[in-house]
Simulated assay, not measured.
Amino acid sequence: MLRKMAGEFKTFAMRGNVIDLAVGVILGGAFGQIVTSLVNDIVMPPIGRLLGGVDFKDLYWKIGDYKNGAPAPVPESLDSVRAAGAPVIAYGQFINIIINFLIIAFCVFMLVKVINRLTEGRKKEEPIGEPTSKECPYCLSVVPIKAVRCAHCTSELGATAGA
């Protein structure tokens, strides 16, 4: 029984679509790290500089007191406030994650757009031929275009019957 299950699992795991999915997940994770680095290291520093030297990672709202009445840490950064035990809303990190999402969504949009354009090009290249069938006006069955009698209801298909 165990051997049979192992064989079934091997068959399942070696299917093309499972391997493709695994490769996609791995590449997606790597792409996510690239986008995170792009946002944190390239996009956000100039924006922070334009806004007066703000580091978006350290933007937060303190929503409670420090643990056991501890004094406020100096300097007050997000990490030091969290280490002192105060609950915070880290909206700066949320802004970074939103920008990450928008960049990834835009990249996926562009990828889908390119794939659609390539697929559309293939469809347009196929020649559209003359119709090879028509509909019987009596029984609505599909019959060959040159038929003079319907094979389904045996009605005569004259010049008035057509596709």
Rank of each mutant, 00 (worst) to 15 (best):
A6C: 06
F9R: 08
M14A: 00
N17H: 09
V18W: 02
D20M: 11
D20V: 09
I26Q: 02
I26E: 05
L27D: 00
G28Q: 03
G28C: 05
G29Q: 07
G29D: 03
A30W: 10
G32I: 01
L38Y: 10
V39I: 12
D41F: 04
D41Q: 14
V43D: 04
M44H: 02
P46G: 07
I47C: 06
G48W: 06
R49I: 02
L51M: 09
K57D: 08
D58W: 02
D58S: 03
W61M: 14
K62R: 15
K62V: 13
G64V: 15
D65C: 11
D65Q: 12
Y66G: 12
K67L: 15
G69F: 12
P71F: 13
V74C: 13
P75A: 11
E76L: 11
S77Q: 08
D79F: 04
S80Q: 12
S80M: 14
R82F: 03
A83I: 04
A86K: 15
P87F: 14
I89A: 15
I89D: 07
Y91K: 12
I95W: 08
I98Q: 12
I99F: 09
L102P: 12
I104C: 06
C107R: 01
V108A: 10
M110A: 14
L111Y: 12
V114G: 05
R117L: 07
G121H: 12
E125V: 05
P127Q: 09
I128P: 00
G129M: 05
G129E: 00
P131V: 09
P131W: 03
P131F: 05
T132E: 03
E135P: 06
P137K: 01
C139W: 01
C139E: 08
C139V: 05
V142Y: 13
K146P: 00
V148S: 03
C150K: 02
A151T: 00
A151W: 11
